[in-house]
Design a protein around this nucleic acid. Sequence first.
DNA 1: TTAAACTTTCAAAAATAAATGAAAGTTTAA
DNA 2: TTAAACTTTCATTTATTTTTGAAAGTTTAA
Lengths: 167, 167
Amino acid sequence: MEFKEAKNKFVQTWGALGSQWGINKTMAQIHALLMVSNEAVSMEDIMEELQISRGNASMNLRALMDWGIVYKEYKAGERREFFTAEKDLDELASKISRERSKREIKPALKILKEVSTIEAKDSAEEKHFVDQTTKLYDFVLKADNMLDKMTEFNENWLGKLVLKIMK
Amino acid sequence: MEFKEAKNKFVQTWGALGSQWGINKTMAQIHALLMVSNEAVSMEDIMEELQISRGNASMNLRALMDWGIVYKEYKAGERREFFTAEKDLDELASKISRERSKREIKPALKILKEVSTIEAKDSAEEKHFVDQTTKLYDFVLKADNMLDKMTEFNENWLGKLVLKIMK
DNA sequence: TTAAACTTTCAAAAATAAATGAAAGTTTAA
DNA sequence: TTAAACTTTCATTTATTTTTGAAAGTTTAA
C-alpha cells in the first residue's frame, strides 16, 4: 500500500467510526486529516482533499474548534488561516470525554435525578421504576467520573499498575 | 412529577442519549422501557406505549436481542412473546462494550494496523503519518482493552480501590 | 477609504437513516 | 390438516441529518 492510499483509507475509516459514535462523518474526516498532517492545513486544501464544500468545511472546522481538538494557526505573511489538530492522544481523549460529559451526560444525569426522585406510592411498578432509575443514576455518575479521571492516570504509575493487573 | 410523566421523560431522555451515541432512538427507547418495567412486556404494549409500528418494534427488538441486552420470555398459556431487558447494569455495560468492540473497534484496529505499517520512505510527511497512526493504534488498543476489562472489576476490591483513589 | 482575499451563515437541496404497513412467514391449538 | 394468532420482512414512505453554494460578513493591505 502506498502512502496516498493509506492516508485515504485512514481518513475514511476514521470518518466511518465517528459516525457510528454520533460524530458527523465530515467532522471526523477533517480531524483525521489534520491528525496525520505534519503541518497546518488550509481550508482550501481540506476542501480539495475531502471533496467537500466551503460551507461544510467551515462549519465542521468550527465545531472541531468548539470541541477544543482543532486549532487555528496563522502563518506570517499569509492571509489564509491554517488548521492543526490536537495530536497528543491522551489530551484528545480527555477533551472529547470532557465535552461529551458536559453536553450529553450531565444533562442526562439531571433528568435521571429528577425522575428517580418521584414519590413512589405503593405499587410494585412504581417502586421498581424508582429503584432502577436510582441505580442507573449512580451507575452513570460513576462511569462519568471514571472517564473523567481516567486520562489523569494514563502515564503514571497507578494507571500502569492497573493496566498490568488487568491484562 | 407523577409516575407516568417520569417514565415518559426517562424513555425520551434515554432515546435521545442513544441517538447521540449512534444507537437508534427507538432501539434506545424500547430498551429504556423494558429497563424500568418490573415485568416482561409484549410487543403490542411496546407499540402502544411508544406509538410505533409493528415492523419497527419487531426490528428493534431483534437488534436488542442481537446485542444480548434484551431477552424473549414465554409465559405459560400465552401465545404471545414477552420481552425483558438485562437489568444488571454492570452486565449491560459489559455486553454493550463487548459488542461495540467487536463490531466497530476491532475492524477499525485492523485498518489502523494496515495503514500504520506502510513503508515510510523518507519524506517527513510519510514518517509523521506512520508515527501518528502507530500511536493511534496503540492508544485505541489500550482503550479497548481497558473497557473490556473494566467491568470485571466493578464490584471487587480493586475496582473499589481504584475508584476511591480516583476521587 | 476600498477592494481584494478570505470566512461564515443559512435557506434550500441532497443524502442518509429510520419507520411504516401490508404481505409473507411461522407457530400452535383444535 | 387448517385457521387463528402471532411475528418477521422489506419495498416504499417519511423524518432527520448533512451538505451545498451563494450572499453576507470580516479582515487586511494598499
